[in-house]
């Protein structure tokens, strides 16, 4: 995710002649006296820890607002659980899905969405940040801009999702040690997929200059992740697993928790890593086209 490595690999955008080397004049002039050695780079975890500490402090600056927003989101999530309760109460099990498994699905979804939208909130705003020139501040720091930005903002409303999801799994998800471990694995995969997908569609705005398509993609992914997509047949199911990876965000992890399967677990992990890598790559490549807000037009 570093800019430097990538920019060096890119010959087109950068420069006509020898941009890898400092221009002759500079090299010549500098030969008299060596530059001071670089200070040791700071480990990335320390940078991210410091940044997210500040993000938390900022979110908690208005403490009453913080907790009321969390409460609202929990109410919102409870309504969904009520819906599923009513649904399965009438319908019974549908193609292997019953209320118990649905609870796990919803717990995976709210926990991972809570982490992504709550703790990594800028993932959702990647397109906006790129289009409006808000990456400048991150680019002025000796850090990976993507990693820094992701942890730069905490959104209390969605932290409510996180609390709800964990609470739901503990209360109704039958949290045996094995199930907890698989749940954690599933959440990790879902976090990677959601973050990677959001960064990927948001990075489109480096090329398009605006991020409507990204917004729609985001809504679609979260919307479909709300449902056990396995109950659909044929093309719909393929679409929801392959095109919009919603199936891997919630349905696959929920199935794993209930009924572990090594192949599905590895497949979900592979998809997660692939989507995350795609997002990081799109961002890094797009950064070369970054215009710092100069071409942002409301066409």
């Amino acid at each position: 995710m570093t800019v430097s490595r990538d920019a060096r690999a890119n010959g087109r955008d950068a420069v006509d002649r020898g941009d890898d080397e400092p221009p002759p004049s500079a090299a010549e002039a500098g030969s008299d006296r060596p530059e001071p050695p670089d200070p040791a780079p700071v480990p990335v975890w320390r940078v991210l820890a410091a940044t997210s500490t500040s993000a938390w402090r900022e979110a908690l600056a208005n403490r009453a607002g913080f907790w009321s927003q969390i409460a609202i989101m929990i109410v919102n999530d409870v309504v969904w659980v009520v819906f599923w309760f009513l649904f399965f109460d009438r319908v019974g099990a549908v193609r292997g899905w019953d209320l118990d498994r649905l609870v796990v699905l919803f717990a995976v979804l709210t926990t991972s969405a809570g982490i992504v939208l709550g703790l990594l909130n800028n993932a959702r705003r990647t397109g906006q940040l790129a289009a409006t020139g808000a990456l400048d501040a991150a680019l002025a720091l000796p850090v990976s801009p993507l990693a820094y930005l992701l942890v730069r903002r905490v959104e209390p409303v969605n932290v409510g999702d996180l609390f709800f999801g964990l609470g739901l799994f503990v209360a109704l998800g039958d949290p045996t040690p094995t199930r907890v471990a698989v749940f954690a694995y599933g959440v990790a995969c879902a976090v990677l997929i959601l973050t990677g997908f959001l960064v990927l569609v948001g990075s489109l705005s480096f090329w398009a200059g605006r991020s409507d398509a990204g917004d729609l993609g985001f809504h679609a992914l979260l919307l479909f992740s709300n449902y056990p997509v396995d109950i659909f047949g044929g093309a719909t199911r393929v679409f929801l697993y392959a095109v919009i990876p919603a199936g891997f965000v919630s349905s696959a992890p929920a199935r794993l928790v209930d009924d572990f399967d090594v192949r599905l677990a590895l497949g979900t992990g592979a998809v997660a890593v692939a989507v995350a890598a795609a997002g990081a790559t799109a961002f890094t490549v797009g950064l070369r086209r970054y215009t710092s807000g100069a071409t942002w037009t409301r066409a």
């Binding site: 950068a14 941009d19 500079a26 970054y290």
Partner: peptide, 11 residues
């Protein structure tokens, strides 16, 4: 280093 140039060099 915020923007990549279209052409030219700098140090």
């Amino acid at each position: 280093g915020i923007l990549h140039p279209t052409a030219g060099s700098a140090a």
